[in-house]
Nucleic acid binder design. Sequence first.
DNA 1: TAAAAAGGTGCCAAAAAATGACACCTTTAA
DNA 2: TTAAAGGTGTCATTTTTTGGCACCTTTTTA
Lengths: 252, 252
Amino acid sequence: MPKNDTFNGQVMKMNARHRQDNIVRHLRRNGTSTIAELAREAGASRRTVLRDISALRDAGFVIHSESGRGGGLQLDPQSVQTTARLSVAEVFALLISVASMRAAGNLPFSGLADTGLAKIEKALPADKIRDLRQFLDCLYVGTLAPQVDISDLGEIDPALLPAFEAAFLERRHLAFEYRDAKGVITQRSIEPQAMLILPPLWYLVAWDPARDGFRHFRMDRISGPNCVKDTHFRRRHVTFDDTVRPLHDAPR
Amino acid sequence: MPKNDTFNGQVMKMNARHRQDNIVRHLRRNGTSTIAELAREAGASRRTVLRDISALRDAGFVIHSESGRGGGLQLDPQSVQTTARLSVAEVFALLISVASMRAAGNLPFSGLADTGLAKIEKALPADKIRDLRQFLDCLYVGTLAPQVDISDLGEIDPALLPAFEAAFLERRHLAFEYRDAKGVITQRSIEPQAMLILPPLWYLVAWDPARDGFRHFRMDRISGPNCVKDTHFRRRHVTFDDTVRPLHDAPR
DNA sequence: TAAAAAGGTGCCAAAAAATGACACCTTTAA
DNA sequence: TTAAAGGTGTCATTTTTTGGCACCTTTTTA
């Protein structure tokens, strides 16, 4: 069997990396799978698949395994996330940071991007980091760079991201303390729906069940966010018309 | 000589990729360099460095070379950026697309992400695309995925992106025709300031000089956008308070 | 004008890395 | 007790990468 695969018409070599990708994909789809199955799927030997599994584990993927009849491999979906768990905010900050570095010479990573990169560096093996850097090097992100004053982005507290992210992902209520423009502090428990980025400020657009309407929260005025477990919510079909009036799509 | 290098304290194997990275870095630092120098630097043979140079060129790096005494290699710094020029919208769409692909099995790339990927695929060799995929695989983008109905995103016309992007990037006025909710059509010439993403709809937040205020435009209701040349504008410090009232940061 | 210094290509053997086959171990459910 | 599962070690084979060499062109300089 030729160890090739086709992608978009063009043939490309099937290498270890590709095979490992397929294994992850297969495990994600099927939930649980045996090594024999994976080997058949990949067109490789059992030994090679075992080596790949080992490599994936080294790379931070948590793959549960059960011996014995009826056993098999199972990919912990959480682990894929923690491999390089980046929030949207971090991705943005990362790109911006890289762009600014390129523009300004050799600034160190700072603020949000720092937490993002640190996560990646911890979670990924060294050669992955090189890939990331190389990828970012190729990506042209100047579009954002001139629009954004980096120094202002640092105001967003990285500590609030995990809870925020979990709430978004798992559709759970997010509870936090909010200090409004007048300094008044309120307790909120809301359903995150969207994110609004108006450089240099970030806003969380959320449904507030207690007030039965959409509300906008400035990220840097949120404190002590907590993802409320066991409280799922349905996604609301957020359209412009649903939100407060003056954002209505008909400009006046 | 052992072909190893240290990074982050841990020793790691020196492979082709790393070597090529070093070559790019060295060329970027030193401006110009000869193959012999690079070979010495990398601890590899002249032939291998030549192969690496060839690979880098395939990858889209523009490396000028001059034969003869006093000649050498020179990396065109522009080439590194234009290798894959992605707009913000494209990066977003790309991430969303990949996330949805992961969730839904094997959807073909569609809509916005298509233009993004097409650019990359043209600019990058096949193995870079794999890197990109792998990178995106590692990247956690589920945050957006469950929030977005992909089928609705297709409404954004990819054709309007270039003008939009140019206007953003070069800070020029953007002229277009806008059809509001009531079907009324107006001609606009505005200064793009931010982008609002409320899945599944995208909005352009812009300063409208004619109306002396911020306006919000639904992307799919914009037609025939044109980047107006020779008309620069200053970036406005957009804060929430600057925009229409009910988006004021104090939730009520 | 010749020589030296630079980039570039083709070819082949050597070195290194990845793979497959196989034997053998442990665990677990039937 | 047996079959089905994961896991490890070893070794030969296959594939890929690398180095060495011959030889080419271009350009400067002695």
